[in-house]
Nucleic acid binder design. Structure first.
Lengths: 333, 333
DNA sequence: TACTCGCACTAGAGCGCGCTAGTAGAGCGC
DNA sequence: GCGCTCTACTAGCGCGCTCTAGTGCGAGTA
């Protein structure tokens, strides 16, 4: 920076002004400074900048590798953050790298706000985070914690899916839940309520699971094993999310069950995956773009008005009917 | 830091020593400092640290959102970087956020090394990056640029896939290439060579494409349209990567073509996707873990010995036969 | 003429650390 | 007693920037 200043015949302060795009420099000097900077390959050091400024204007995003819905969200976070003049730092949770570790990395980089995609942290930890930095939890709702929430209308999504299945004549509908995963509790509850509402209470069955393909495969195998022991196969499966649904599809198809003739499968997320199945996955659509925008906006607004109370955005869900859902087999109606 | 020092009754320097895990503090003092720090919620500021130290010990990783193979790689990068004492920063390229933009963000954060996952930048740009920072290109080989390369044996992978198809009796094998995507040139070349070697030169056909599902779908539709005009459908498709293969599968299945009875499809990457298809995608396996480890190691080694010349690692490829490849239809043999 | 104002620009403190050069004191051999 | 080494600790500079409080100057105003 000093080199640029000297070569352009101005002070360092002026160079700073130019690079911050602030008023206080004549157009002529501005151009000269930029030209000189370009010549000697100068670019401002973010770390020093951040340090001097006292503010980082950086939003940290924690996501989980392999969660395709998260990448959908990330895609929406970048442009909105940029529009509002914020930088984005990504940190992934993965096998061997816990969510807490990923978050620590973000905090060490002095992110002012955290956006947690599908966190499965405990309420106390979330609350602590929320007090340490502006925090937005996407997909996961933990009312006890001092954080903003952005999620879709889980209840509505499940209700739409269940109505669709019941309308197709299904009665033996099982739900594979997402364990402690984001949204799981709400979806489970909504499933039970829907079964009750349709008078299918006695058929209701929640199989514990996770938001992974493996979990779907496992559950698929379990159901096949039950069938081989003479128990009836369900005619429809409402999976905890798309990945789990894909796992179910895979296990079932391998086991000779034809979808959707013998079995209907409904996912949740409308992540990138849903389009991939040759026949298309029937799923509940969450508007990733909109969720991302809300998350960023919540964070920024609370950053700029710290006295604001955390808020909650519940975005609409829609059912997207594709190829994996069809009429229940006559025999099972 | 000053607060911690005061409360613990030591100097700032001593606190610094404790947090850097350096010798020069008694075990007793160390514990006391750490306890006090925890009490007042102090954690070192990465930016200041980086600034004072002059080195960031940070590796920047550029990846493309939705490229599932990239998330496989990221999962391998974290532990290896941690093992070697480096921090990792992620920056995603996405629609509306170019690769260059993602890289700039990393450089502004003073990453000492860049790992580019499947870059499709021009040679000149890569070379420039390579001179500005230690750069490792994964999957993409650009010998003219001063960067390290880590990729798998594309030639071998394609050869294995082609031998497999030919052995199954396929003759009309088309290749959808990946445009300027990483590895595409090598795969294309290897495809042509394999066709020649098997005396199928006259059947060789490369359809321009991309490494996306959309491209696969498009190509699938193209082939179906050709069929409807009376042209023969190929009996096998070697896609540019798994995503493209998924697209082909989807388009074809929708068009009433049964896989693998009427058509065999082979992908490339063995990314997470490959397991997802109900019948499993036959694909060429690249060892993501190993590639990630090599990438990090190359970066770190060159960071610590700047006089080192850039190197190249070519990792073995394997064919993973799953459900999407089968014997060619009798009529086409 | 004396003044105010706005514009272009500058001096220099300070952001939170790391690091070098140093000190103080204990232990040791001679 | 002296010098020596070793351990535990400290003073204070400087990393590359931002930002506040200025300075100097020409134009406009009373």
């Amino acid at each position: 920076m000093a080199d640029v200043a000297e070569k352009a015949g101005v002070s360092r302060a002026l160079v700073s002004i130019v690079f911050r795009n602030q008023p206080g420099a004549s157009e002529e000097t501005r151009q000269r400074v930029l030209r000189v900077a370009d010549e000697i390959g100068y670019r401002p050091d973010n770390a020093a900048r951040l340090l001097a400024r006292g503010r980082s204007r950086t939003i940290g995003v924690m996501f989980t590798v392999h969660q395709t819905f998260h990448t959908d969200l990330i895609e929406g976070i970048y442009p909105e953050a940029e529009r509002l003049g914020y930088d984005v730092l990504l940190s992934a949770a993965a096998e061997g790298r816990s969510e807490a570790k990923a978050v620590e990395a973000l905090l060490a980089h002095r992110c002012e706000a955290l956006i947690l995609l599908g966190s499965d942290a405990e309420a106390a930890y979330l609350d602590e985070l929320g007090r340490r930095a502006v925090t937005v939890s996407v997909s996961r709702r933990v009312p006890q914690a001092r954080v903003d929430f952005v999620h879709s209308a889980e209840g509505k999504g499940v209700r739409l899916a269940m109505d669709h299945l019941v309308e197709l004549g299904h009665r033996r509908i099982v739900h594979i839940d997402g364990g402690r995963g984001p949204g799981s509790a709400e979806r489970r509850r909504a499933y039970r309520a829907a079964m009750r509402r349709h008078g299918l209470e006695s058929e209701a069955r929640v199989i514990p699971g996770e938001h992974t393909e493996e979990s779907g495969i496992e559950t698929g195998r379990l159901l096949l094993a039950e069938r081989d022991q003479g128990l009836p196969l369900p005619t429809a499966v409402l999976a905890g999310n798309d990945r789990c649904a894909m796992g179910v599809l895979m296990a079932m198809t391998r086991g000779g069950v034809e979808v959707p003739r013998d079995l209907s499968v409904v996912g949740y997320d409308d992540s990138h995956l849903s389009h991939l199945m040759p026949i298309g996955l029937t799923t509940v659509r969450q508007d990733a773009r909109l969720m991302a925008e809300y998350a960023v906006r919540f964070a920024v607004e609370r950053l700029e008005k710290p006295e604001l109370e955390p808020r909650e955005a519940v975005l609409d869900s829609k059912l997207v009917v594709r190829g994996t859902s069809g009429p229940a087999p006559e025999a099972a109606r």
